[in-house]
Design a protein around this nucleic acid. Structure first.
Lengths: 210, 210
DNA sequence: TGATTGAACGCTTCAGAAAGCATTCACGAA
DNA sequence: TTCGTGAATGCTTTCTGAAGCGTTCAATCA
């Protein structure tokens, strides 16, 4: 088996690798990263510590694998949320960011260990963080594309527009806010921002078509 | 003399209090909060440590005083920047946030100790942080008022709009970004966001006047 | 009476020793 | 050749006692 390198895109996981990740995930969720030891993970899988290193380059990489799953799941949920039929492009954009806020807020309050670990990994591995942002941007670009096809939107540069959207809603995906903020208030502010945003798009469409 | 309580709005400072704050500021800037001792501050002012507590309730309150000065200065700079004559309302809004980004970015890189201390105090004293946000919002509200008077803008709720603006540009005032981000890139993204924002306002004005 | 002092108190930080843990590697089993 | 082991290694965290520092207060000064 090829030793996986840090940060590289993983091929579909081995059974053993998956077992390791499962065991580690359980422990990370209950006790957190710091309070989980490699021996414990190995013990849960009935193997020795040394063998873990045949499947993951380091403990931190196991954690990255854990977060990668969360991330994949989250992107999928976002896709599902905006994929329901009958949504206009504007509704899709709103749903996207509402859902993202809700998922982040819930995870922050209901699975603090998972949230904390995500933040840690995203901070230590900028590449990985970029990967996630890019994956989200891809979903946004698809929404924008859909909007252009139906004529609901006129966007000159989709990737750039996606980036702008991510900038604009940054506050609602930034942990600092979750400590204090009541969810309802946050969601309300998000809607206000979205309204202004959409008016901006409307203005641009109007200008282009004139 | 009345013992000042933590967090309360300070009356214009006593000469002695100002001397303490001056001495403390010098030390905070050079050595940081942690490496500055109360004896050193007292020594610089030719007084005993005990006497410091007649003017400030705690070391942390001295630091708050220090940050309060920075904040006041920053608000003044923002006012100056948007106050130059001949600026349209849209240019004022752009200037406001460009200036804010520039000030924060510069302080982060040129006076890291001051930046760090600001962050710390703002985190520990939510009330104080709110005060700052409110002061900024006041400047924004004034800009918006000006825009309404000249008919450049149509805003239904000024305070709320100011809040939306603060939300939208949150990313550019959030420290996480300064580590990595090149200033030019950040400023460019800020402009992109501002363009969309202003289009949103334009759309609303158009809709109202129709 | 109001301002100031500096020693005393107890919490926090720090240095150095001890323990624990991530990681490696030489070796064995399938 | 692949998978797996578990003791050895050395980095990191934890522990503990001592030093340092913020804070208080009874006493002194003007």
């Amino acid at each position: 088996m090829v030793m996986p390198q840090s940060g590289e895109a993983l091929p579909p996981l081995d059974d053993t690798a998956r077992a390791i990740l499962d065991a580690a995930s359980r422990r990370f969720l209950h006790y957190g990263y710091g309070k989980t030891t490699m021996s414990e993970i190995a013990g849960d899988c009935n193997m020795s510590t040394g063998n873990l290193y045949r499947y993951f380059a380091s403990k931190f990489d196991i954690a990255e694998g854990f977060v990668r799953r969360l991330r994949t799941d989250q992107i999928q949920r976002l896709r599902d949320a905006v994929g329901v039929s009958g949504l206009s492009t504007q509704e899709k954009l709103r749903t996207f960011f509402r859902t993202k806020l809700k998922l982040a807020y819930d995870r922050f309050h209901r699975r603090p260990k998972a949230y904390e670990l995500s933040q840690e990994i995203l901070k230590e591995r900028p590449t990985f963080a970029d990967e996630w942002e890019a994956a989200e941007a891809r979903v946004l670009v698809e929404i924008l594309e859909g909007g252009e096809m139906t004529g609901e939107l006129a966007v000159c540069n989709r990737a750039r527009t996606a980036r702008i959207l991510q900038d604009v809603f940054f506050r609602f995906t930034s942990s600092a806010v979750y400590y204090e903020g009541d969810y309802g208030v946050l969601a309300g502010e998000l809607d206000d921002v979205m309204d202004l945003m959409l008016d901006g798009f409307a203005q641009r469409r109007g200008r282009d078509s004139s």
